[in-house]
Design a protein around this nucleic acid. Structure first.
Lengths: 176, 176
DNA sequence: GCGTATGGCTATCACTGTTAGCCACTCGGG
DNA sequence: CCCGAGTGGCTAACAGTGATAGCCATACGC
């Protein structure tokens, strides 16, 4: 069993909050220890009194991202209506609202042992439920949603592509 | 009209080859100008006599990746049989064979002005053709394939997930 | 044979994450 | 009240990153 991330002190949470503000505003290239420290009016080495390394900072942001997206997914299912379409909307919404966080959450292999326990599973559960436990279908749908999202974020579709239509196409292809 | 990448000198192509060897063997974190120079028995600053910057190196690798994958896609279509399944196999094969190149090709917004002209379009054409010009369907399928690929590369599916089944599911969902 | 372009080199810069080691402050126990 | 310890800052520094400036030897065309 992988050991989970230790709880963060109040000061550590302030640091994570500052880091997230920088990330959301300027992207991961701007997320440096010196920039985070600057925003708090301290020097970079002082951050290490509260967090072991930059990875812990990122892991905390990723954990929060999982929790927030999980909340969205759960709310989407709770509202009734076609569950897959609702989930897709929620997925897309989260990524558009927090593109740099979404990137951080997906661009690298997950440092699962540094995440809050259960957050990944919680974020994955609503889709599995909406697929009635058909995990192959859930995985294919997730792949579709992630692909649409990240390819759009990376500007890989033509400027004039009708992405709403492509989303629609995918959802109905996997639909009930 | 975006200006395309200038032709590379013979020496520059040697440098790109060395860079690609490092990338394929050890991943993008190992792809540093000093490592590339080392492999050629010279010093890092000398590389800049042949290439403007590291981005040009990466762009050359990405261009080659597009051309190689395009060849694969075209061959897959030429062989007859169910075109979408054949394309999916070819897509998956390329990513498995060259995971770090695939990552480099997809993880960031494309520096299109640095690529060889037409390579992106050539790689995209076979899927568009296989979809009979239905671009929404082609985009949805690409998103699915990329999602499956990158999520697998990033270890995001459970260890025991049956990815063949998920691929199958997606292909048949979009199938004719 | 000479001038110039080519392609190396060293030294250096600003930046990254990170560590070592120092110091001021605060707070609990004798 | 004083004192020891823990807390949370600090500066200096290191190795590694991409990149630039400027020097120099070789080779090649006129």
């Amino acid at each position: 069993m992988a050991s989970s991330a230790p709880e963060l002190s109040a000061r550590a949470r302030e640091i994570v909050a500052a880091a997230r503000e920088i990330l959301e505003a300027e992207g991961s290239a701007a997320l440096t220890m010196r920039r985070v420290a600057d925003r708090l009016g301290i020097r970079a080495p002082s951050l290490y009194k509260h967090l072991p390394d930059k990875g812990a900072l990122e892991a905390a942001i990723i954990s929060a991202g999982f929790e927030e997206s999980a909340e969205r997914f759960e709310a989407a299912l709770a509202e009734g209506g076609e569950p897959l379409a609702a989930l897709a909307r929620a997925y897309r919404w989260f990524a558009r609202e927090h593109p740099h966080v979404y990137r951080l959450m997906t661009e690298r292999p997950l440092a699962r042992e540094r995440l809050l326990e259960g957050v990944e599973a919680r974020a994955a559960a609503p889709l599995a439920r909406a697929c009635g436990g058909d995990l192959d279908r859930a995985r294919a749908l997730w792949a579709f949603a992630h692909g649409m999202t990240i390819l759009e974020l990376n500007g890989r579709f033509p400027q004039d592509a009708d992405l709403d239509a492509a989303w629609e196409r995918g959802i109905e292809a996997f639909g009930p």
